[in-house]
Structure formats: C-alpha cells, structure tokens
Simulated scan of single mutants.
Amino acid sequence: MNFKRFGRPAIIAIVAGLALSSCAANEGDVATTGDEAASTLSGTINGAGASSMGAAQEAWRAGFQTANPDVTVNYDPTGSGAGREAFIAGGTDFAGSDSYMSDEELAGTFAACAPDSKAVDLPVYISPIAVIFNVDGVDELNIDADTLAKIFAGTITSWDDAAIAALNPDATLPATPITAVHRSDDSGTTKNFSDYLGQTAPDVWTAEASDTFPFQSGEGAQGTSGVVDAVTNGVGTIGYADASQAGTLSTAKLMVGTDFVAYTPEAAAEVVAGSPLVADRAADDLALELNRTTTNPAEYPLVLVSYAIVCNEYADAAQGELVKAYIGYIASAAGQAVAEEAAGIAPLTSELEANVATVLATVK
C-alpha cells in the first residue's frame, strides 16, 4: 500500500511502543480474578453514519461489549452525510462515513473535540459496491462504465437497449423500462459510485463526486436497505449497494480492462492496496485516493472505504479513551476478522492496521 506520511521504520517503532504502553496500561485498567482479566472500562459511546457498515457495526458492538461489559456502544446507521453532521455538531463521539471529510468540513470546528484540535479519517471497513438488478429472465449481466453511467443518468431507459445487448450477446433482454434506484439521502456510497463513474466514464458522468445523487432521474430510496428493498420489490430495477447487503439479488460484472469482473472482497482489497493517501492533508489523516481506472482484472474498482472519524483530541478526555479503545478494536486483526465473518468485508492489510494504530496512539 502506498502510504506517504509514515515510513515503515517509524510505524514499527511507534507500534512497538504501543505494545509496551498497552501492557502497562492493561496493568492499571483490568482487575484479575483467577486466570481471567476483567475490563474496567465503563460508559457509553455514541456513533452514527454509514448504513453500509451496519452489519459490521452490529458485530463490532457485540464483540466489544462482551469484552467490556460496562460499556454500551450505540451506532445509528443514518447515512454518511448525516453521521458526519451529527459528529461535527457534537451529537456523537465518532462518525462512520463511506467518504472522507471534505476540505470545508476540516476547516470548521468539531464540538466534541478539544479547542484548536481537529478530526481525522481512519479507514476501518473495505467493501465492494455491488451493482444489483432485478430483471425477469436475466440472471447474469455484464456492464461497462459508459453504459452504467448512461443508465443512471437516464439516457438508457430500456433493458433491450443496443448498448446493453452488445455487452450481453447470450442474454434474452426484455423490452422492460429501466428503473435505476439511487440513494435519496446524502450517502458516501453514492459518492464512491459517482467517483467511479466520473473517473471511468467522464464524457457521460459529468457531475462532481458528491454524497448527493446528481441527476434528476430514476427513483430515490432512503439508506442501503431502502435501495435493496426497492430493487427487490420493483420490476426492471437496478441499483448500487454495499455488497454485504446485496442478499440474494443478482449482481452485475463490471468491465475492467478487457474482462468482466465480479466483485469479491479480495478484488476490492487489491484496489485499496494500490491506492495512495489523499495529498495535502494532515499527517494523521488516512483518507485514500482510490484507483478507479485500473485495468487489472484482479482488481474491482467500484469499492468503498468506510472511515471512523474521530477527534485527535477530545474535549472530554475520558470519552476520548473510550472511543480510542473501541476504534482500536474494530481496526485490529481481531475486529476485522469479526466483521469479515459478519459482513464479508475485505480486512485491512497489516500495513494499514499499523497506520491506524499509529494515529490512534496519538488520540487523547
């Protein structure tokens, strides 16, 4: 993975220091009964944001609360935009977001953070975005970026359109109108979907990547579950959703180079591994510039990275320690394994885990 702000020796040194300080901290933070160590953490952590990571958050909450029975973790999957707004206003202790904070957001103030401190983006969740569809008689679908962009921009309106037929010569495509379902709320999934189409089909998808769906076309639905429900219960529908919530719906293969590629966690992880950090941001911000234009068929470019957005210093230091412990758990190898089982995510690489741990070491 291409990280520019931390050299590997620095990471190793800091993570080694973390291990030592963790041992020392554990001696004061746990009470030992027999052979078992009991957590002394207590309190409530409130988070809100990306609905894509809803299943993972449920698994993380359960795992963390089992290990820390006096801690309650709440997570409201309101959508990335709403989650960031709530965090900025001080209504939550952290946000989950499928898009990193904008420069405008970073330039503002954060009510839960200490004066003169800021918030940072920490990647904790990697998942493909699936193009889901429900078309009578069609179980498999190949699609390229131009055609997908035209469907969601509203310029391809029938399933037997010549552009779709050319990509699917063996399919029997009905003359059914296309209903393209998008998110009606501000959504990081939409921003990632729009970013993919803007980079791979720029002549068609002329809108800037944004949490808000940019065209007056198709049908809007609230949240990931709303999109999945609308596609499932509609006729001739197509939509986009975090792959972990695609369920039994059919999913399209995307053209990557000259091949049609199905989503897999492994293919999503490959794209992230080759993506650099966003330039010109603070040294402790780990926002990623995803490589959407890859032609490598081992990579699936329609991918989202969800971030835990936290203060680098909390106004309430005790609350900061709770958040630090929870985010540390979800970004750890153990937490990632829990989410992989529950939601089928692509776990963070060991290098990315180390970078997140390095930043968390400075959170207070």
Rank of each mutant, 00 (worst) to 15 (best):
M1V: 14
F3I: 11
F3H: 12
R5F: 01
R5E: 08
P9L: 04
A10S: 11
I11Q: 09
I11T: 13
I12Y: 07
V15I: 10
A19W: 03
L20V: 15
C23G: 11
A24E: 10
A31T: 15
T32D: 08
D35G: 06
L41R: 12
S42Y: 01
N46P: 03
A55G: 11
F64Q: 12
P69V: 06
P69D: 07
T78V: 15
S80L: 02
A82I: 05
F87N: 11
I88E: 12
A95P: 10
D98Y: 00
L106C: 06
A114H: 03
A114S: 12
K118W: 01
V120C: 06
P123Q: 04
A130V: 05
V131T: 15
N134G: 10
E140V: 09
I143W: 02
A145G: 13
L148G: 12
L148E: 12
K150H: 07
T155C: 07
W159N: 11
D161W: 00
N168R: 04
P177W: 02
I178G: 12
V181R: 04
R183T: 15
S194K: 02
L197V: 09
L197E: 10
Q199K: 14
P202F: 02
V204A: 08
T206Y: 01
T206N: 09
T212I: 11
T212Q: 13
T212P: 05
Q216Y: 00
T232A: 13
T232F: 01
T232L: 04
T237R: 02
I238F: 02
G239T: 09
D242I: 03
T248P: 12
S250W: 00
S250P: 11
G257Q: 05
G257Y: 03
F260M: 11
A262S: 15
E266R: 03
A268V: 08
A268E: 09
A269V: 09
E270N: 14
V271I: 13
S275G: 08
D284F: 01
T293R: 06
P297I: 03
A298E: 15
E299F: 01
Y300W: 09
P301M: 01
P301V: 05
V310A: 09
C311Q: 04
G328S: 07
I330A: 05
I330C: 05
A331M: 00
A334L: 06
A339V: 06
A339Q: 06
E341P: 03
I345K: 00
E353S: 10
N355R: 09
V356H: 04
V356Y: 04
V356P: 04
L360Q: 09
